[in-house]
Design a protein around this nucleic acid. Structure first.
Lengths: 255, 255
DNA sequence: GAGTGGTCTAGACCACAGA
DNA sequence: CTGTGGTCTAGACCACTCG
C-alpha cells in the first residue's frame, strides 16, 4: 500500500522538499529548470509545474519569470513576541526598539530597517481608529521596511495623529530612548493598553512587490492599536508579514 | 489600458468572486459545473479550474470530488479575543466557557461543541512543555470539535498532566463553573500567565478531513500554554482553525 | 535572440459519489 | 452506470530577463 495513490505532482513535491530541507540546494541558489526536471522524470511540463507551485505556496522557493526558481533565502521562522517588547525591563535597557534586530541576529542573519517619514491622508480604517479626518493629511506615518540578510521580511506602517505628533521628535528618524511610546507619554498621551488583531490574507500587488513574494503567498495583517487610559487610540500600526516567515507569540497575565 | 493583461483564469475568478459576494449563489449551494462554465465562456477545462482553485484557496468555495463545487457556508470572520476570555469578570459571570458560543450567536449562527475525553500518550511537543513522559498514557486530553451552523470551524485539544488531572472533575464532560482553569486552581495549580504561539501551516490529512477543508487551505496552529507562578506548565492546548474563518485578537496592558 | 517561468488548449483517463 | 471534480499529457504561445 504505502499510499501509492498520491498524485505525481505531489510525490515530486515531497521529493524536492526533502532535498531542499537536507540542503542539497543552497539558500538562494537556483533549482533545476522545470523543463529539465520534466525530461528527467518523464513527466509533462504542467505536472512538474504543479509540484513547483506547491513548494512556492509553502514559501520554500520562489520563481522569477525569465530567470528561474530559487530556494528561499530564509527557511526558518522568525519569532515575534508582541508582548515582551513592551515589558518595562526591555524599555529601560533600551531594547524596545531592538526586538527585531535581536531576533534576526539570534538567527545568525543581519537585520536592516529603513524608515520613511511623511504626513499623509490615513486609510479609512486607521482614520476611524484614531478619530481623525481621512480627507486631510492628518496623520504622521512612519513606514518601516524590515529586512534580514537583504530579504524583506516585514512591512510596518505606524500612524500617529498629526495634532499630537507633527513637529515632535516622533517625526525625526531617531525617536530617542524608549521610542515613540516614551515620546507620546511625555506629550501627555501615555499608552496603557495594546490591542493587536491578526488576520491572514493575500497581499495586494504593491505589498507583494515590496516583499518580493508572489501575490498568492498569504501574509499576516496585524492591526496594532495603542490606547491611553481614557481609551483614546494614539498609535495605530499595520504590520504585513509573510506567514511562512513568522511565528507570533503573545503572553499575558490572568487577573 | 485598464489591466487587460490579467490572465483569463484570474479574470474569471474575479467575476465569480464578485457574484458570490453579491449573493448570486446562496451559501452552501452549488456553483455551475466546471465543464459547463468552460463551454459557456469558451475556455478550456484547466483554465476554468484555475479560477475555481483560486476561489478555493481564498476559502470562498469548496469542491467535492464527484459532487460539485459549493459556496462556503460561512463567509464572515469569526472573532477570537484570546485575552478577554480570561478576564475575571468573564469568569465570574460564568462566561468563560461561552466565549465561542457568544461569538457564533452574535453572527446569527448556531454554535455546537462536541467533546471527547481520553487518556493518551502526548505528542512530543506537548510532553516537553508539560514535562511528562511521551511514552506512557500520561496526559488527560479534552478534544473539542467546534461548529457553527453544522460547519466545523475549529479543533481544540487540551492536554493536562495525568498526575494532576486524572480522576478529577476535569475528566468529566462538565468541568463545572469556571472550567478547568478554576478546577486546576482548586487543586493547587493556579495559572497566572498564558502564552499563545501562532503559526500558519497546511493541515494534516486528518485535520483537513475533520475540518472538511482541502489540504492546501492554510490553518492557524495556536499553541496555548498556561503556567503557574512557579513557571510550571499545567495546561497545553493546540487549536487548529482555518485562517479564512478567523480573526485573532490580543489585548494586554503596558507595565 | 535565447532562455526562463506562466498561460492555455483539447482531450484522455482516474477517483469518487450517488441513483 | 452516469456525472462530478482531479490529474496528466504534448505542445503552442506569451511575458519577462539578460547578454
Amino acid at each position: 500500500m504505502t499510499e501509492s495513490k498520491a498524485p505525481k505532482w505531489q510525490r515530486l513535491a515531497d521529493d524536492l522538499r526533502e532535498r531542499i530541507r537536507k540542503g542539497a540546494y543552497a539558500r538562494g541558489s537556483a533549482l533545476p529548470q522545470i523543463r529539465e526536471v520534466a525530461e528527467e522524470t518523464g513527466l509533462a511540463y504542467e505536472t512538474v509545474r504543479g509540484a513547483f507551485r506547491a513548494l512556492e505556496d509553502e514559501g520554500l522557493v520562489h520563481s522569477r519569470k525569465g530567470q528561474g526558481t530559487f530556494v528561499s533565502p530564509i527557511l526558518t521562522k522568525i519569532y515575534r513576541s508582541s508582548t515582551s517588547r513592551y515589558a518595562r525591563s526591555a524599555r529601560e535597557t533600551g531594547q524596545s526598539r531592538g526586538a527585531f534586530d535581536t531576533e534576526i541576529r539570534r538567527l545568525g542573519m543581519v537585520p536592516q530597517t529603513s524608515v520613511t517619514i511623511s504626513r499623509e491622508r490615513p486609510p479609512a480604517r486607521v482614520a476611524s481608529l484614531l478619530e481623525v479626518s481621512s480627507r486631510a493629511k492628518s496623520v504622521l506615518v512612519r513606514d518601516r521596511t524590515m529586512s534580514a540578510d537583504g530579504t524583506v521580511v516585514q512591512l510596518a506602517a505606524s500612524y500617529f495623529p498629526g495634532s499630537i505628533a507633527f513637529g515632535t521628535q516622533i517625526e525625526q528618524l531617531d525617536t530617542g530612548p524608549g521610542g515613540s511610546l516614551s515620546r507620546l507619554a511625555e506629550l501627555g498621551h501615555k499608552q496603557v493598553e495594546i490591542t493587536e488583531d491578526i488576520d491572514v490574507r493575500k497581499p495586494t500587488k504593491n505589498e507583494a512587490s515590496r516583499l518580493s513574494i508572489p501575490v498568492d503567498r498569504p501574509v499576516y495583517e496585524i492591526t496594532h492599536v495603542g490606547r491611553t487610559a481614557a481609551g483614546q487610540a494614539v498609535e495605530v500600526a499595520i504590520h504585513i508579514a509573510p506567514t511562512t516567515l513568522w511565528t507570533l507569540s503573545y503572553t499575558w497575565p490572568i487577573d
